[in-house]
Amino acid sequence: MAHRILITGASIAGTTAAWWLGRAGFDVTVVERAPAFRDGGQNVDIRGVGRRVLREMGLERAALDRGTGEEGTAWIDADGRPRARFMTGQIEGDGPTAEMEILRGDLARLLFEAARPHAAFRFGTVVERIDDGADAATVTFAGGQTGAYD
């Protein structure tokens, strides 16, 4: 029998964990306080380990395709002339902008859609209580429903 895993929070970290755990054969449930999946938010740079994780998940190309298209950053003076430019193609290593720049909501949706085949998602509920047992933890959710998790 697969271990039963409960994740609270269906945002970037929760959906990523659900993808990995579900793919590894665990029985994963994700609960989220919001009544439905939430996207939106500002742009984020994905670098280093985050980029490697997306690559290992097979999502790096999809994230790049959904990127903001930002090519760099420029500071403009009062007359509209550029005074400093930092273009992604001209920077080695970490700089003020990254090649993989994506809106937070687009990244969250990409990860959520990838995780859905690997986990059950329950929106509009929260954990109210956790009771430790010999073989499992019994979790009581808002509304009185319960579940047993390892």
Rank of each mutant, 00 (worst) to 15 (best):
F123R: 03
E128G: 00
L21E: 02
P35G: 09
R109Q: 10
E101D: 05
I91V: 15
E56T: 07
V127C: 05
A137G: 13
T146Y: 03
E70V: 14
A119L: 10
T29C: 10
A137N: 14
S11I: 07
A34K: 13
E56Y: 08
A115N: 06
E101Q: 15
I91S: 05
F141H: 01
G48V: 03
T138P: 01
R52G: 10
E113Y: 05
F121K: 10
R104N: 08
R38P: 07
I91M: 15
F37K: 06
A136D: 11
V30Y: 07
R55W: 13
A84F: 13
I130T: 08
V30L: 08
D131P: 08
R129P: 00
G95I: 01
V31G: 00
D39M: 05
Q42G: 14
A115C: 06
A98C: 06
E70L: 14
W75C: 08
G58E: 04
S11Y: 06
A36C: 11
I5V: 15
P82T: 15
T29N: 03
F37L: 13
T29K: 11
R66C: 02
G9N: 11
G133L: 05
A108G: 10
A134Q: 14
R83P: 00
W20Y: 09
G147D: 04
P35N: 14
I91L: 11
T73Q: 14
F123P: 09
P117N: 05
R51F: 11
G41R: 06
I130M: 07
L111K: 00
R109W: 13
P82H: 11
T138Y: 02
L103V: 03
D77G: 04
T29E: 06
I91H: 09
A119F: 05
E32G: 02
F123D: 06
R47L: 07
E56W: 09
H3F: 12
A10R: 02
A98Y: 02
L103E: 04
P82K: 12
D39C: 03
R52Y: 02
I76M: 09
F121Q: 07
E128W: 00
A62M: 11
A98I: 07
Y149L: 05
G133M: 13
R109A: 12
E101M: 10
D65L: 11
T16M: 04
T125S: 00
T15C: 15
T97F: 09
I76Y: 09
I12W: 00
E71I: 14
T125W: 04
G69M: 12
A34D: 12
E128R: 02
R66Q: 10
